[in-house]
């Protein structure tokens, strides 16, 4: 079966990319260490601020708004999804541009592989590195500040995984766009920040002004993080969890179809313009 041979070959290519990126990642040990330290640095002042609003470790106002008084657990779960959103924008989005700046993009593009599979390889290693990073940060936050997860973590993972797949579908499109636009730092900074603001990673989305909340409710990631919190912490969900799951699953299909289409269009455009090796 030809497709089976093709799939085996493509999976081998994905594995090679994972191994290569893994090696390169650890050859910058300070960067690796800082990626663990930075989220803890961000969370620390918020933790102490939250304590001042709490009585006997229970943030009553926060409980009234969300259904849980454990604001650290609330933020940690938001932080898990937020770290994937940031990674999709900054790591995936800039993955091709980084290769281009290194000078290695053309070498990759010269190999007899589908360019989409090369990006899939990059996505997988990204997911793995972010997962390792997230678990390590969660462990550190647990030891430093403490939090409780009383709900079904396995069920939450069943929502998180398709949400990550959907995000990387978007990431593939965004990688193409950054390759084309090139000078996309400000655009990425702004968009990534805006998504974090309106999706309620650090606070309930209901705390937003109505106009921003509407924008937030248009993004599938808002439903994903809301459902995860509802399952794990027993917070009040925006919509029934089943609806959130449906939104996330539909977004997987939409983001991957659109992502692939946009990436192929941009790739063809870049090859026509001859800008693959320029930056």
């Amino acid at each position: 079966m030809e497709w089976r041979t093709d799939l085996r070959t493509n999976l081998r290519v994905v594995r090679a990319i994972i191994a290569k990126d893994w090696r390169v990642y650890w050859r910058y040990p300070v960067n690796a260490f800082m990626s663990l330290l930075t989220p803890i640095m961000w969370l620390t002042p918020v933790f102490f601020l939250g304590l001042t609003f709490s009585r006997d470790g229970d943030a009553l106002g926060f409980r009234a708004s969300t259904g849980t008084g454990d604001f650290v657990a609330f933020m940690v779960l938001g932080g898990v999804v937020a770290s994937y959103v940031r990674t999709v924008f900054w790591q995936m989005g800039f993955s091709l541009k980084t290769e281009m700046e290194q000078g290695t993009l053309e070498s990759l593009w010269l190999t007899p592989n589908s360019r989409l599979w090369l990006l899939v390889g990059r996505s997988v290693v990204n997911v793995l590195l972010t997962a390792i990073n997230t678990v390590t940060v969660m462990a550190a936050v647990y030891l430093l500040f403490g939090f409780e997860m009383t709900g079904n973590v396995g069920q939450a993972l069943l929502i998180l995984l398709p949400l990550i797949v959907a995000l990387y579908g978007f990431g593939i499109a965004y990688a193409g766009i950054v390759l084309y636009v090139k000078d996309a730092n400000s655009l990425t900074d702004l968009t990534s920040f805006f998504v974090e603001v309106v999706s309620g990673f650090n606070y309930p989305v209901t705390a937003l002004p109505r106009a921003l909340m509407v924008v937030g409710l248009a993004l599938p990631v808002t439903y994903g993080v809301d459902a995860i919190r509802a399952i794990v912490l027993g917070t009040r969900p925006l919509v029934p969890v089943q609806v959130s799951v449906a939104v996330v699953l539909v977004s997987v299909v939409v983001f991957w179809v659109l992502g692939r289409w946009i990436f192929n269009r941009v790739d063809a455009r870049v090859r026509a313009m001859g800008t693959l090796g320029t930056h």
Binding site: K20, R23, V24, R27, Y28, Q102, G103, T104, E106, S107
Partner: peptide, 9 residues
């Protein structure tokens, strides 16, 4: 050009 390889490998 000599930048087509991974320098960190």
């Amino acid at each position: 050009g000599d930048r087509s390889l991974y320098w960190k490998l």
